[in-house]
Design a protein around this nucleic acid. Structure first.
Lengths: 272, 272
DNA sequence: GAGCAGACATAATGAATTCTTATGGCCAGA
DNA sequence: TCTGGCCATAAGAATTCATTATGTCTGCTC
C-alpha cells in the first residue's frame, strides 16, 4: 500500500508504477484509493498527464519512504549480526536527503559494524576510493571513481526562493560553485530556451544554496528530496524543464563478497 | 504481521495476543510462522507456558515497534497540520525508552507545533502540571498529578549486572534513590521470599543505574524497554518474580478539546 | 474539428491470501 | 491420572486482492 504510493510518486504516473511493480493499472488505482480512505484525505492530484502530490501527500511521502526502508532492513537483516567497516561516499545532494538516516538504521541493526558516510569533492573522493578508505561511492555517472555496477536516473526540479518572481528578467539563479556535473547542463538548458539569466549567488555547499533560496536570492535546480515543499514550482511552464541526472554506484573491487558491503549496497539500491 | 509479533511479545503468549487483537490463536500462529519465514530465522521460542524472544527476535522488536508507531502516526496525522504547544511529563524509565523518539516523529509531522518532553521529580512534576506548563503526565498511578484518564499495567523484570552471580548471598541490589514507587515493592518482594539482600549502589537517575549494572555492581528491577538484552535474566526461578507497575495518564483539564493534545495523548496510549 | 493516444476510474469476475473451526500433542500442577 | 493452558496443524469458509474489460477525460495531430 505504501509501496504503491511511493512508486506512483516516483514514477509520476499510476500506470508506470503499476508496470514497475509488475501489476496492472487498476490494481494500483484501487490500492491508492484505499490508502486515501485510510488517511482520510486525498494524497494525489490525478490528471491526464499523470499524478502529483497534494499537501497531505507531501507530508506522508517521507514517512512512507522511511517506513519502507526500515521494514526492508529489519526483515532482511535481523539476526545476521554483520561486522566490519564500510565507508560510503555520497554526492552532497544525496547526503542531505534521508539516505544517511536509513544507513544509520542499518548500522544500528549491526552493532558490530561501523559505517561511515562522507561527501567529498570529486578529486578527494577518488583518492579515498583508490586508497580503500571508501568502499562504495554513489555519484553522478561521469564522476564515479570506477565502473558503475548499476545506475539510476533521477529528475531535477526547480526550487523557487522565497518571494522570487519566476518571470524576472534576467532570471536570478543560485548555483553550486564547485564543479557540479549538472551545473553546466542547467545553464545549457537556460541558454537553449533563450531565457536571460544571471548568477545571483554561488555556494560550494548545499546548505549554502538552501540558505540563499530561503533568503529569496533566486531559483536553483535541486533533487526532489532536497526540495522544501514551499519552494516547489507549481507551474510547469514557468521555467524550462530540466534534464535528468544519472547516478551510478562504484564498489571497490577488493570488497567483492564482503557481506556487510553487500548489505549496504543493496540498501542503497533500494532507497535511491 | 509486525503487529502480531509485537503483540505476542508484549502479551507473552500467542493466545493472549490473539484475543487482544480480536482474532483466533491459529491465525496468529500462522502469521508469526510466516513472518519467521520472511526473516529467515525463528523469532520466538515456543513453550507450553508462552513465548519468549530469540536473539533475532530481540533485534527485530525495536524496529517493529518503530515501524508500527510511524505507520500509525503517518496514516492518521498526515495533512492535519496541527499547531500549538504540548508539554509531556514522563517517568524517567519511560523517557529513556523509544517513546520520546516516537514523539519526535509526531512533532516532525506537525511543523507548526512544539513538543516538549521532560521528566522531573514528583513534586516538580506536580508543580509544572498545576502551572499548566505540562499538559500530559504519564507516571505511576500513585504519583500522577490528577485523576488518570486511563491506565496500563506493565511488568518489571530483573536486569543482571555484568558478571554478577544471581545466587550470591546476600544479593547485591542496585536501586533508584529517589522515591520511586516500585522501590518499596521490589524490596517487599525480596523480603517476602526470605531472600537476603544488600544495597550495592543507589543512583537517582536511570543512566546511573544502568552504569552500575554494566559495572557489575548488582541486579536491578527495570521495565523491559530499558533492559539491554545481555542483561536479561533467562532463568525464571533464579529471582522472585516482580509485581507489575501500573501507569496512568493525567491530562490538564484546561486542554480539553485541544486537537494537538488529543493527538499526543492517543500517540502515548498507542505506544505504551 | 475529428480522431488518436495516453492516463485514470469503475465494475465484475477469478485467484490468493487470510481467518476460523476442529483437532492433536505437550507440559505443569492438582 | 486427570485437567487446564499453550502451541501446531489441517481443511473449509470468507475476505481481500488482482485482472480483464470498459468508460471518461484531456491534449495532440492532421
Amino acid at each position: 500500500m505504501l509501496r504503491s504510493f511511493v512508486t506512483a510518486v516516483r514514477a509520476g504516473s499510476i500506470s508506470r508504477a503499476a508496470t514497475a511493480l509488475g501489476h496492472t493499472q487498476p490494481a494500483l488505482s484501487q490500492q491508492l484509493r484505499k490508502l486515501e480512505s485510510v488517511v482520510g484525505r486525498p494524497l494525489l492530484y490525478r490528471s491526464p498527464s499523470g499524478v502529483s502530490l497534494t499537501r497531505a501527500g507531501e507530508e506522508l511521502l517521507p514517512y512512507a519512504e522511511r517506513i519502507l526502508s526500515l521494514s526492508a532492513q529489519a526483515l532482511t537483516e535481523a539476526g545476521r549480526a554483520l561486522t566490519g567497516h564500510c565507508g560510503v561516499g555520497l554526492l552532497e545532494d544525496l547526503a542531505a536527503s534521508q539516505l544517511p538516516q536509513a544507513l544509520a538504521d542499518l548500522a544500528r541493526l549491526h552493532p558490530g559494524a561501523t559505517l561511515e558516510v562522507l561527501s567529498l569533492s570529486n578529486a578527494a573522493m577518488r583518492e579515498a576510493y583508490d586508497a580503500g578508505r571508501v568502499h562504495l561511492v554513489l555519484d553522478e555517472v561521469p564522476d564515479v571513481p570506477g565502473p558503475p555496477r548499476w545506475t539510476v536516473r533521477r529528475p531535477l526540479v526547480w526550487a523557487i526562493g522565497h518571494g522570487v518572481d519566476v518571470a524576472a528578467d534576467p532570471l536570478p539563479v543560485v548555483l553550486f560553485s564547485n564543479t557540479c556535473a549538472w551545473r553546466t547542463s542547467v545553464l545549457e538548458t537556460l541558454e537553449r530556451t533563450d531565457r536571460p539569466w544571471r548568477v545571483a549567488f554561488e555556494s560550494n555547499s548545499l546548505v549554502g544554496v538552501l540558505a540563499a533560496l530561503r533568503a529569496g536570492l533566486g531559483v536553483a535546480a535541486l533533487m526532489p528530496a532536497n526540495l522544501e515543499p514551499v519552494m516547489a514550482c507549481h507551474d510547469p511552464d514557468a521555467l524550462p524543464t530540466l534534464p535528468d541526472v544519472e547516478l551510478g554506484l562504484a564498489r571497490h573491487p577488493r570488497t567483492e563478497g564482503d557481506p556487510l558491503i553487500d548489505a549496504v549496497e543493496t540498501a542503497l539500491r533500494r532507497m535511491i
